[in-house]
Simulated scan of single mutants.
Amino acid sequence: MYKGQKPVRNSVAPSRLQAGTILFMTVARKTDIGYFLKTGADEVFLHKNESHGPLDMNEEVEVFLYHDHENRLAATMDLPYVGMGEYGWLEVVDLSSKMGVFLDNGINKHLLVFIDDLPKLRDEWPRPGDRLLVALKQDKQGRMLAKPVTEQEVLQISVQADESMRNKNVEATVYKVIAAGAFLLTEDDHIMFIHRDEMTERMRLGQTVRCRVSFVREDGRLNGSMRERKEVQYGEDAEKLLRYMNNRDGAMPYTDKTDADIIQDKFQMSKSSFKRALGKLMKERKVEQVDGWTKVIKQED
């Protein structure tokens, strides 16, 4: 868990209690269903379900303030994984097509990442079980929301990589998706960029993948790939094309002149990967190109 600051005990009573605050409060009154807690002139209610056991009058307890399901400011003794002024990884637990995604922040009420803070394309939204690197913010009504971390916050977390990382396999989680690819943070906090041509599938925010470091930049950032090293990938791509043709009577209407978009759609590989694989097969005299078609060369017995 990454945090911008640790929760601190309040030495001066705030003039206005706010959601997202962790503070110590004193039991001022008891009811059948809970306790009224006080700090300075302010009071807030702690339901028995949010207490870690019976409390005594004037007992001091540490609580987290949030808006309950009826939008009332309330207290819980369950402390959040991420508080105001902090940031960290939280798990996605639910999705709403109209509102956004909900995260588990360690308390009964889940934390919302509003739809405006998510990618415009729905297939780039995180799924339940994914993890988002977020900070907390408040809306105009003072309610807590989560938002993906900014690039500046990622820089505070990140660690520069050295050349020894090249060609290593790492686990990394997507924290930002753009048209050209995706930015990830590795398990060792290195920033990595994977271009869409180096993806084996379309990536989404919060997705964790196993990938290979293809290049270490001078600034300590990494370029990554979900593909095998070229000498391995050539062979796999070539076998994929050969299988495709053998399942179509030994031919396909695609050559090294075919448009890149068609290649990507049919084979989920870039035009350059397609040409390398095709070149390998032609060099090995396994295929030939004739009149806009690629055909398997029948081997003589």
Rank of each mutant, 00 (worst) to 15 (best):
M1S: 05
K3Q: 09
Q5M: 11
K6W: 02
V8E: 12
R9Y: 06
N10H: 15
P14F: 04
P14Y: 10
P14G: 04
L17C: 12
G20N: 06
T21C: 07
V27T: 05
K30P: 11
G34N: 12
G40M: 03
D42P: 07
E43M: 10
F45H: 01
F45S: 03
N49S: 15
H52A: 07
G53E: 12
P54T: 12
P54I: 09
V63S: 02
L65G: 06
L65C: 14
N71S: 15
L73P: 07
A74Q: 13
L79K: 02
L79Y: 09
G83A: 15
Y87T: 07
E91I: 10
S96Q: 05
S97P: 05
K98L: 10
G100P: 04
F102R: 06
L103Q: 02
L103E: 03
N105Q: 03
N105I: 04
G106S: 07
K109N: 12
H110C: 02
V113F: 04
D117W: 00
L118I: 10
P119I: 07
P119K: 02
L121P: 03
D123T: 08
E124H: 08
W125F: 06
D130I: 01
L132G: 02
A135G: 14
L136Q: 11
D139C: 09
G142S: 04
R143H: 13
P148M: 00
T150K: 10
L155F: 12
L155V: 12
Q156G: 11
Q156V: 11
I157W: 07
V159C: 13
Q160W: 08
Q160C: 05
E163M: 13
R166T: 15
K168L: 10
K168V: 01
N169L: 08
N169H: 14
V170R: 01
K176C: 01
I178T: 14
A180W: 05
A182K: 00
L184G: 04
L184H: 02
L185W: 00
L185M: 14
D188S: 09
D188G: 11
H190Y: 15
H190V: 07
I191K: 08
F193H: 07
F193I: 05
R196E: 13
E198N: 13
M203Y: 05
Q207W: 04
Q207S: 04
T208G: 09
V209Q: 05
F215H: 15
R217D: 12
D219F: 11
R221L: 03
M226I: 00
R227I: 14
R227S: 06
E231F: 15
E231Q: 13
K240S: 01
R243W: 03
R243D: 08
Y244S: 05
R248I: 03
D249F: 11
G250E: 01
A251M: 12
P253K: 05
D259I: 06
Q264Y: 06
Q268H: 14
M269Y: 02
K271F: 09
K271P: 06
S272T: 09
F274I: 09
K275I: 14
R276V: 10
L278K: 00
K280D: 15
K283E: 11
E284S: 11
R285Q: 13
V287Y: 01
V290F: 08
D291K: 12
G292F: 05
G292L: 01
W293K: 14
W293I: 03
